[in-house]
Amino acid sequence: LRLEVKLGQGCFGEVWMGTWNGTTRVAIKTLKPGTMSPEAFLQEAQVMKKLRHEKLVQLYAVVSEEPIYIVTEYMSKGSLLDFLKGETGKYLRLPQLVDMAAQIASGMAYVERMNYVHRDLRAANILVGENLVCKVADFGLARLIEDNEYTARQGAKFPIKWTAPEAALYGRFTIKSDVWSFGILLTELTTKGRVPYPGMVNREVLDQVERGYRMPCPPECPESLHDLMCQCWRKEPEERPTFEYLQAFL
Protein backbone atom coordinates (compact mmCIF):
# COMPACT_ATOMS: atom_id res chain seq x y z
CA LEU A 1 0.00 0.00 0.00
CA ARG A 2 1.52 3.34 -1.07
CA LEU A 3 0.18 6.74 0.02
CA GLU A 4 0.98 9.18 -2.79
CA VAL A 5 -1.08 12.37 -2.86
CA LYS A 6 -2.85 13.92 0.10
CA LEU A 7 -6.40 14.77 -0.98
CA GLY A 8 -7.83 16.29 2.15
CA GLN A 9 -8.05 16.60 5.89
CA GLY A 10 -11.07 16.38 8.17
CA CYS A 11 -11.74 16.52 11.91
CA PHE A 12 -10.94 12.84 12.30
CA GLY A 13 -8.07 12.24 9.88
CA GLU A 14 -6.76 12.54 6.34
CA VAL A 15 -7.55 11.16 2.90
CA TRP A 16 -4.83 10.12 0.45
CA MET A 17 -4.73 8.82 -3.07
CA GLY A 18 -2.50 5.82 -3.45
CA THR A 19 -1.80 2.45 -4.99
CA TRP A 20 -2.83 -0.91 -3.60
CA ASN A 21 -1.15 -4.18 -4.65
CA GLY A 22 1.08 -2.15 -6.95
CA THR A 23 -1.63 -1.59 -9.56
CA THR A 24 -4.99 -0.53 -8.15
CA ARG A 25 -5.63 3.19 -7.70
CA VAL A 26 -7.29 3.65 -4.31
CA ALA A 27 -8.32 6.23 -1.74
CA ILE A 28 -6.86 5.72 1.73
CA LYS A 29 -8.50 7.25 4.75
CA THR A 30 -6.34 7.47 7.86
CA LEU A 31 -7.99 8.07 11.23
CA LYS A 32 -6.40 10.05 14.05
CA PRO A 33 -5.48 7.74 16.91
CA GLY A 34 -8.26 7.80 19.52
CA THR A 35 -11.05 8.49 17.01
CA MET A 36 -12.49 4.99 17.42
CA SER A 37 -11.50 1.71 19.00
CA PRO A 38 -9.66 -0.59 16.58
CA GLU A 39 -11.78 -3.56 17.75
CA ALA A 40 -15.08 -1.79 17.10
CA PHE A 41 -13.77 -0.58 13.77
CA LEU A 42 -12.70 -4.04 12.65
CA GLN A 43 -16.17 -5.40 13.42
CA GLU A 44 -17.83 -2.64 11.42
CA ALA A 45 -15.40 -3.14 8.55
CA GLN A 46 -16.53 -6.76 8.24
CA VAL A 47 -20.09 -5.52 7.72
CA MET A 48 -18.98 -2.76 5.36
CA LYS A 49 -17.12 -5.27 3.21
CA LYS A 50 -20.37 -7.19 2.73
CA LEU A 51 -22.14 -4.13 1.32
CA ARG A 52 -21.51 -4.27 -2.43
CA HIS A 53 -23.47 -2.08 -4.80
CA GLU A 54 -22.57 0.05 -7.81
CA LYS A 55 -23.66 3.20 -5.95
CA LEU A 56 -21.68 2.51 -2.79
CA VAL A 57 -17.97 3.25 -2.59
CA GLN A 58 -16.35 -0.19 -2.50
CA LEU A 59 -14.28 -1.04 0.57
CA TYR A 60 -11.15 -2.98 -0.39
CA ALA A 61 -9.18 -3.42 2.81
CA VAL A 62 -8.59 -2.08 6.30
CA VAL A 63 -5.58 -1.78 8.58
CA SER A 64 -7.04 -2.23 12.01
CA GLU A 65 -4.27 -1.10 14.32
CA GLU A 66 -3.76 2.56 15.11
CA PRO A 67 -3.49 4.55 12.99
CA ILE A 68 -6.50 2.92 11.35
CA TYR A 69 -6.42 2.92 7.53
CA ILE A 70 -9.43 2.36 5.29
CA VAL A 71 -8.72 1.50 1.66
CA THR A 72 -11.55 2.14 -0.81
CA GLU A 73 -12.10 2.65 -4.51
CA TYR A 74 -10.82 5.99 -5.77
CA MET A 75 -13.33 8.57 -7.02
CA SER A 76 -11.65 11.12 -9.27
CA LYS A 77 -13.83 14.16 -8.56
CA GLY A 78 -13.79 14.01 -4.79
CA SER A 79 -16.68 14.86 -2.50
CA LEU A 80 -20.03 15.96 -3.89
CA LEU A 81 -19.92 19.01 -1.63
CA ASP A 82 -16.64 20.26 -3.12
CA PHE A 83 -17.82 19.31 -6.60
CA LEU A 84 -21.03 21.38 -6.27
CA LYS A 85 -19.14 24.38 -4.93
CA GLY A 86 -16.36 24.13 -7.51
CA GLU A 87 -15.95 25.21 -11.15
CA THR A 88 -18.14 22.44 -12.56
CA GLY A 89 -20.95 23.18 -10.11
CA LYS A 90 -21.88 26.35 -11.99
CA TYR A 91 -22.79 24.36 -15.09
CA LEU A 92 -24.91 21.71 -13.42
CA ARG A 93 -28.60 22.03 -14.23
CA LEU A 94 -31.61 20.54 -12.49
CA PRO A 95 -31.83 17.34 -14.60
CA GLN A 96 -28.22 16.46 -13.73
CA LEU A 97 -28.73 17.29 -10.06
CA VAL A 98 -31.86 15.12 -9.95
CA ASP A 99 -29.98 12.29 -11.64
CA MET A 100 -27.27 12.53 -8.97
CA ALA A 101 -29.96 12.45 -6.27
CA ALA A 102 -31.46 9.33 -7.89
CA GLN A 103 -28.07 7.59 -7.85
CA ILE A 104 -27.67 8.35 -4.15
CA ALA A 105 -31.23 7.11 -3.45
CA SER A 106 -30.40 3.92 -5.35
CA GLY A 107 -27.33 3.27 -3.18
CA MET A 108 -29.35 4.02 -0.06
CA ALA A 109 -32.21 1.75 -1.20
CA TYR A 110 -29.65 -1.05 -1.17
CA VAL A 111 -28.52 -0.04 2.35
CA GLU A 112 -32.23 -0.13 3.29
CA ARG A 113 -32.66 -3.64 1.82
CA MET A 114 -29.61 -4.82 3.75
CA ASN A 115 -31.11 -3.48 7.01
CA TYR A 116 -28.13 -1.24 7.55
CA VAL A 117 -28.06 2.43 8.59
CA HIS A 118 -25.65 5.07 7.27
CA ARG A 119 -25.99 7.66 10.09
CA ASP A 120 -24.08 10.45 8.35
CA LEU A 121 -25.63 10.99 4.94
CA ARG A 122 -24.71 14.39 3.46
CA ALA A 123 -23.00 15.81 0.37
CA ALA A 124 -19.59 15.69 2.11
CA ASN A 125 -19.93 11.88 2.33
CA ILE A 126 -20.94 11.31 -1.30
CA LEU A 127 -18.10 10.86 -3.79
CA VAL A 128 -18.16 11.79 -7.47
CA GLY A 129 -16.37 10.04 -10.33
CA GLU A 130 -16.29 10.51 -14.10
CA ASN A 131 -19.55 11.34 -15.94
CA LEU A 132 -21.34 12.55 -12.81
CA VAL A 133 -21.31 9.12 -11.22
CA CYS A 134 -22.16 9.43 -7.50
CA LYS A 135 -21.51 6.89 -4.78
CA VAL A 136 -22.27 6.83 -1.07
CA ALA A 137 -19.18 6.70 1.18
CA ASP A 138 -18.37 6.42 4.89
CA PHE A 139 -21.43 4.34 5.80
CA GLY A 140 -21.61 3.13 9.38
CA LEU A 141 -18.46 4.85 10.60
CA ALA A 142 -20.26 7.61 12.50
CA ARG A 143 -21.50 5.10 15.10
CA LEU A 144 -17.94 4.30 16.15
CA ILE A 145 -16.56 7.79 16.74
CA GLU A 146 -15.52 8.26 20.35
CA ASP A 147 -14.64 11.98 20.29
CA ASN A 148 -16.59 13.82 23.02
CA GLU A 149 -17.25 16.80 20.78
CA TYR A 150 -19.10 14.33 18.58
CA THR A 151 -20.73 11.78 20.88
CA ALA A 152 -22.46 14.49 22.92
CA ARG A 153 -24.46 15.13 19.73
CA GLN A 154 -24.46 18.79 20.78
CA GLY A 155 -20.72 19.10 20.20
CA ALA A 156 -19.07 21.17 17.50
CA LYS A 157 -18.17 18.18 15.34
CA PHE A 158 -21.65 16.67 15.15
CA PRO A 159 -23.56 17.34 11.88
CA ILE A 160 -26.74 18.49 13.60
CA LYS A 161 -28.16 20.26 10.53
CA TRP A 162 -28.35 16.95 8.67
CA THR A 163 -29.65 14.88 11.56
CA ALA A 164 -33.28 13.90 12.17
CA PRO A 165 -34.63 15.28 15.46
CA GLU A 166 -35.21 11.84 17.04
CA ALA A 167 -31.59 10.92 16.24
CA ALA A 168 -30.12 14.22 17.45
CA LEU A 169 -32.18 14.30 20.64
CA TYR A 170 -32.49 10.63 21.60
CA GLY A 171 -29.88 8.82 19.52
CA ARG A 172 -32.54 6.96 17.52
CA PHE A 173 -30.65 6.35 14.28
CA THR A 174 -32.60 4.29 11.75
CA ILE A 175 -32.95 4.15 7.99
CA LYS A 176 -35.73 6.74 8.53
CA SER A 177 -33.27 9.19 10.07
CA ASP A 178 -31.16 8.59 6.94
CA VAL A 179 -34.22 9.55 4.87
CA TRP A 180 -34.39 12.85 6.78
CA SER A 181 -30.72 13.47 5.98
CA PHE A 182 -31.40 12.68 2.32
CA GLY A 183 -33.98 15.50 2.31
CA ILE A 184 -31.28 17.86 3.59
CA LEU A 185 -28.88 16.53 0.93
CA LEU A 186 -31.48 17.45 -1.70
CA THR A 187 -31.21 21.08 -0.51
CA GLU A 188 -27.42 20.85 -0.85
CA LEU A 189 -27.82 19.64 -4.44
CA THR A 190 -30.36 22.30 -5.43
CA THR A 191 -28.36 25.15 -3.84
CA LYS A 192 -24.96 23.94 -5.15
CA GLY A 193 -23.61 23.09 -1.74
CA ARG A 194 -24.91 25.88 0.47
CA VAL A 195 -24.93 25.02 4.18
CA PRO A 196 -28.48 24.05 5.26
CA TYR A 197 -30.51 26.47 7.40
CA PRO A 198 -28.40 29.47 6.37
CA GLY A 199 -27.90 32.02 9.13
CA MET A 200 -28.93 29.59 11.86
CA VAL A 201 -26.62 27.96 14.40
CA ASN A 202 -26.99 24.32 15.48
CA ARG A 203 -28.87 25.05 18.69
CA GLU A 204 -31.42 27.20 16.81
CA VAL A 205 -31.91 24.54 14.15
CA LEU A 206 -32.67 21.93 16.79
CA ASP A 207 -35.22 24.18 18.52
CA GLN A 208 -36.87 25.45 15.34
CA VAL A 209 -37.16 22.03 13.72
CA GLU A 210 -38.70 20.65 16.93
CA ARG A 211 -41.27 23.46 16.64
CA GLY A 212 -42.08 22.45 13.09
CA TYR A 213 -39.87 24.77 11.04
CA ARG A 214 -38.77 23.33 7.69
CA MET A 215 -36.51 24.92 5.07
CA PRO A 216 -38.43 26.71 2.30
CA CYS A 217 -38.22 25.78 -1.37
CA PRO A 218 -34.75 26.74 -2.71
CA PRO A 219 -34.65 29.22 -5.62
CA GLU A 220 -35.18 27.53 -9.02
CA CYS A 221 -36.19 24.28 -7.33
CA PRO A 222 -39.51 22.84 -8.53
CA GLU A 223 -42.28 22.67 -5.92
CA SER A 224 -42.60 18.89 -6.50
CA LEU A 225 -39.01 18.41 -5.37
CA HIS A 226 -39.52 20.61 -2.32
CA ASP A 227 -42.60 18.55 -1.54
CA LEU A 228 -40.40 15.43 -1.61
CA MET A 229 -37.96 17.09 0.82
CA CYS A 230 -40.86 17.87 3.15
CA GLN A 231 -41.95 14.22 3.05
CA CYS A 232 -38.42 13.27 4.14
CA TRP A 233 -38.78 15.75 7.01
CA ARG A 234 -42.02 14.45 8.47
CA LYS A 235 -41.86 14.48 12.25
CA GLU A 236 -42.90 10.83 12.59
CA PRO A 237 -40.11 8.64 11.20
CA GLU A 238 -42.50 5.94 9.95
CA GLU A 239 -44.36 8.51 7.83
CA ARG A 240 -41.24 9.33 5.83
CA PRO A 241 -40.89 7.64 2.44
CA THR A 242 -38.61 4.66 1.81
CA PHE A 243 -35.46 5.02 -0.28
CA GLU A 244 -37.07 2.61 -2.72
CA TYR A 245 -39.87 5.16 -3.20
CA LEU A 246 -37.43 8.08 -3.40
CA GLN A 247 -35.40 6.30 -6.06
CA ALA A 248 -38.54 5.61 -8.11
CA PHE A 249 -39.80 9.19 -7.70
CA LEU A 250 -36.54 10.74 -8.83
Results as ranks from 00 to 15, higher is better:
W180Q: 02
E236I: 11
M200L: 08
A152Y: 03
A142M: 04
G212R: 05
I145S: 04
P95R: 08
Y213T: 04
T24Y: 11
V117C: 10
I28L: 10
L144S: 13
V209L: 08
F243W: 15
R143C: 02
P219A: 12
P95T: 08
N202S: 04
V195E: 11
E87A: 12
Y60E: 13
T23P: 13
V136C: 04
K50R: 10
I184K: 01
T191D: 07
V5W: 15
A164C: 14
P222V: 07
L132G: 11
M17K: 10
F83G: 06
E54L: 11
L42I: 07
V201K: 07
V117L: 07
E44A: 01
Y170Q: 09
E65A: 09
D227Y: 14
Q231P: 05
S181L: 01
F158V: 05
L144R: 15
R25Q: 09
M108C: 13
V195A: 12
R122E: 03
M229A: 06
L127V: 13
A109Y: 15
R2V: 09
G10L: 00
L51I: 05
L80R: 02
C134M: 09
N115Y: 12
S37R: 06
V62H: 05
V117E: 00
A152Q: 04
A45Y: 03
P165T: 14
V5K: 13
Y213S: 05
R211K: 09
E44P: 00
L31T: 09
R122S: 01
Y110D: 07
D138T: 01
A45F: 01
V136A: 04
L42P: 03
L185K: 01
Q9I: 04
Y110E: 06
C230K: 14
P219I: 15
E244N: 13
K29S: 01
G199C: 15
P95N: 07
T19M: 12
G155N: 07
M200C: 08
Y150F: 01
A142L: 02
T242P: 15
N148E: 10
L250R: 07
F182V: 06
K157F: 14
E4G: 15
M48Q: 03
I175R: 15
E112L: 15
L144N: 09
W233H: 06
A27R: 03
Y150H: 03
M17H: 10
L31A: 12
N202T: 05
T191K: 06
E44S: 02
E220P: 06
K32L: 07
M108L: 06
L31I: 03
D178S: 01
L94N: 07
N115L: 11
V63T: 05
L246T: 06
G212Q: 05
P237Y: 14
Y245D: 07
P198C: 09
K32D: 01
E239I: 12
G155V: 03
R119T: 02
F158L: 05
V62M: 15
D138W: 01
D138N: 00
D82K: 06
W16H: 15
V117K: 00
L92E: 09
I104L: 05
K157S: 04
L206D: 01
A27V: 03
S79G: 04
V111Y: 00
T30C: 05
A61R: 15
G18Y: 12
V71S: 04
C230M: 09
T35E: 09
E87T: 13
T191H: 14
Q208V: 14
L94T: 06
D120R: 03
G155D: 08
Q9E: 15
H226W: 10
V26Y: 08
R194S: 10
